[in-house]
Design a protein around this nucleic acid. Structure first.
Lengths: 146, 146
DNA sequence: TTATTAATGGATAATTACTATCCATTGAGT
DNA sequence: ACTCAATGGATAGTAATTATCCATTAATAA
């Protein structure tokens, strides 16, 4: 179910990439957060344990992870990309108030894909579904304090 | 049904923006294409008739159109934004082979919005649905020549 | 129609996320 | 352990977008 460190190392090696502490650290950080960090957020998360970490390394590492299927890139309409270690294709929802981005797991999208394929005559291979609104926490705040 | 020049002028004025030939020209160009141009494509489309047109003007104009609801911005995962004068929220599909972007009109998305609202507990206000694949034309080419 | 004034267009500089380059260092197979 | 290509970090470069500046223009009032 959950990808562990050992298999991440194997996947890197099997694609001809070296296994380095930095790469394992980046993957570990991404794996252990639900906040869909961008490169700079990852960099700042890693700085305390890896003071020599470079932002360029984060970018290069994420490009590799994207290539070999260890992470996916999100393009939610902000000024920077976010990253997600969950590899099943799933929609995301962003709170317009606080900016948090959440996964929407267990979303059933086969009917959509069929509908779009029929309407477009495209042979579909992928999708990116982004939703926008107000998260439960921000809704609560509004009710209490506004 | 279709937005004409007169009402574009009215909408600009009603939001306190001046009505200028450049703005009408940008809107006209965007209205009369289905290829979802980015700023540079729009600029190049307009150059023949408006040799003095500036790329900065296109950007500024599109920002205004986005604000006042005369166009929407698409973020399809390319390195630049594309624009669409069709204001009903609708999905888009991009051909991975030739890069064209098509509208998917008549897409029924109420069921999706309900499903996502239920799964996320967000109060949803918007969505951006992007699909990727191979367009009919490129499928045909592949079958014939590859 | 003209005068007045604030908005605008175009030129250009600045910003910023991201990518490429360079070289000393390091991981991994021999 | 040895060898060497891959890597990390520093830094420069790229490219889309945004901000600035000022002469010009559109809109309102007279």
């Amino acid at each position: 179910m959950m990808m562990d460190m050992q298999s991440v190392a194997d996947i890197l090696r099997s694609h001809g990439f070296k296994v380095t502490p930095q790469r394992l650290a980046v993957y570990d950080a991404l794996q252990n957060t639900t906040e869909h960090p961008n490169a700079e957020m990852l960099y700042n998360m890693l700085l305390p344990s890896y003071p020599a970490m470079s932002l360029a390394t984060v970018y290069k590492t994420m490009e590799i992870f994207d290539q070999i299927g260890l992470a996916q890139v999100l393009n939610i309409g902000e000024d920077s990309y976010r990253y997600d270690a969950r590899m099943e294709n799933h929609p995301h929802v962003r709170c317009n108030t606080c900016g948090r981005v959440d996964d929407i797991m267990e979303f059933e999208d086969e009917a959509i894909m069929e509908q779009v394929a029929k309407l477009s005559d495209y042979k579909l291979t992928g999708r990116q579904l982004y939703f926008y609104g107000e998260c439960p926490k921000c809704q609560g705040k509004k009710k209490k304090y506004n």
